[in-house]
Amino acid sequence: MTVQKQQMKRPLRSDTERTVRTILEAAERVLAADPAATMEQVARAAGVARTTVHRRFATREVLLEELTGWAARQFAEAVDAARPDAAPPLVALYQVTANVLRVKTDWSFAMNRSVEDAHPEAARRHAEVRATCLRLFRRAQEAGVFRPGMDLDWTRRVYYALIHEAAKEGAGGGDADALATRVMETLLSGAGVPGGPSGV
């Protein structure tokens, strides 16, 4: 194992971890505004020397990869924090929605990178979230939140699309709780008039 790989395996010291997070947060802000931004621009936004950025991330691609992995971890942790396997299904579903919207608006550039296939950690965490979401939807169906016989994978995809649209609306600093309420209302009630003709 090379020295560089050994260093990557070691736990980061708290001051190093703070520096890394500062750089990643700056990278998210800068790249969300300009996807072609340079390492120098990231360093300036982070308030650190360019050499500090290069010491932590040897290349721009390494920085992008770490940013993607970081956002995927925040995404998975946001879902876990809602206790989707323990909290009452409707409560958990609302909290997952609000938590995920916060991550998707705070880390919009990283979350929108289409690199799941090329980034094993991001792919793994997104797959775990999909499985968690389906478990939560099954619990919701058993609790009477969703109709019996609903295609839960289709419902999940619609739910993801609603979150995606809400995150775009919240990119300018929208209220995650209000957006989560809108997503939930649309998911649970749809756009039709309750009890009205379906037209189908």
Rank of each mutant, 00 (worst) to 15 (best):
92 A>S: 10
76 A>Q: 10
91 V>H: 00
80 D>R: 11
87 A>C: 14
59 T>P: 03
54 H>S: 09
87 A>Y: 14
57 F>V: 04
70 W>G: 01
96 V>E: 06
75 F>S: 05
90 L>A: 15
65 E>H: 15
100 V>Y: 00
97 T>K: 11
79 V>F: 14
90 L>C: 11
60 R>K: 15
81 A>S: 10
78 A>W: 01
73 R>A: 14
85 D>T: 14
59 T>Q: 02
58 A>Y: 04
56 R>S: 01
98 A>G: 10
98 A>H: 00
87 A>F: 06
66 E>G: 05
75 F>T: 05
80 D>V: 09
81 A>W: 01
62 V>T: 12
96 V>L: 13
82 A>N: 06
86 A>W: 12
74 Q>S: 07
67 L>W: 02
97 T>A: 13
72 A>T: 03
76 A>M: 15
79 V>M: 13
95 Q>I: 00
81 A>Q: 05
72 A>E: 04
60 R>S: 07
72 A>R: 06
62 V>Q: 12
56 R>W: 13
61 E>K: 04
68 T>I: 00
60 R>N: 04
74 Q>P: 03
87 A>G: 10
87 A>K: 06
89 P>Q: 09
100 V>W: 01
75 F>A: 01
81 A>I: 02
60 R>A: 04
75 F>K: 04
79 V>C: 13
56 R>I: 09
77 E>W: 05
73 R>I: 11
57 F>R: 02
68 T>C: 09
91 V>F: 03
86 A>E: 15
65 E>Q: 15
94 Y>F: 15
74 Q>Y: 07
98 A>K: 08
75 F>Y: 15
